[in-house]
Design a protein around this nucleic acid. Sequence first.
DNA 1: CCGCAACTGACAATATGTTGTCAACATGAA
DNA 2: TTCATGTTGACAACATATTGTCAGTTGCGG
Lengths: 153, 153
Amino acid sequence: MNDPPRTPSGDAFAEFAISVLRLAGHLTSEGDRLAQPSGQTSARWQVLAAARHSTLSVADAARALGLARQGVQRIADILEAEGLLAYQQNPAHQRAKLMTLTPSGEAALAEITARQSVWVNALGAEMGEERLRQATALITELAALLGERRAST
Amino acid sequence: MNDPPRTPSGDAFAEFAISVLRLAGHLTSEGDRLAQPSGQTSARWQVLAAARHSTLSVADAARALGLARQGVQRIADILEAEGLLAYQQNPAHQRAKLMTLTPSGEAALAEITARQSVWVNALGAEMGEERLRQATALITELAALLGERRAST
DNA sequence: CCGCAACTGACAATATGTTGTCAACATGAA
DNA sequence: TTCATGTTGACAACATATTGTCAGTTGCGG
């Protein structure tokens, strides 16, 4: 029945992977909770934050967020329809218009960011900075490793 | 414009959360890659594995996986239609039928598990058992914390 | 200038997962 | 037994995100 034996470190990795997936679900829920009072969601918040960080085209933002272009386009179109975001002409590309936040979009993002601060401060204090930084280092290292593999394929 | 200030540990938590969400995306992709040769996906694999681990109702499996009952039901119905899984009568509950793997389901799961072993052994060795176990402990602790909050609401 | 490859937005189909609602079922208290 | 409460599966609506495909745009090599 059982062919390839699992090493102890392999077992540790498998358990780690499962725990990461479960936590990701919780974090997305919490993100929705933080964004909800401003009428937004985790996904829209991400796009708003990306547009705030620098003026990007939809395709640029998708690359920055590690998501498919089409999904970000969908969110951006909704945000534009709701008046939180506006498309500006791009002198360098007629079709790839640039996203900028409207005052309304800035306000929504600021509200969410404020709520997020309270949340991260509480949980950061609970879990401990040093442990979090060590775990983040491991996770970032692993994500880079998996990203490279994908790129090399 | 300003803001509740973020503490250092709050910053650490925010970075940690972002890294977890990114890694989860990579892990899901890798899971799909492992499951694909057997005609499955990450989500179906999770349900098959839960059903294999012990005989569960759909609702039990959803709780074990940390997902909504309805989503697991949807996957389980697909697996049943494909003949990888069968519903058995539950002596303790007339409606909550129990999931069991068919021989075909066992075979598919075994294939995926075999591929997974190679993968986790390689990455476990790369990342180190002790670091993985420490990170898993942190993540599990945090997931439990977030789960409690949700339950208490 | 021309053509071709890469990029971009639009559209469609599909997969995953959530919430809400309902009726059937189970369980324990009155 | 009866009733209140919680659990469970079914169904619907919606949010998120993927892949595939297409046509318009850009930029570059010939």
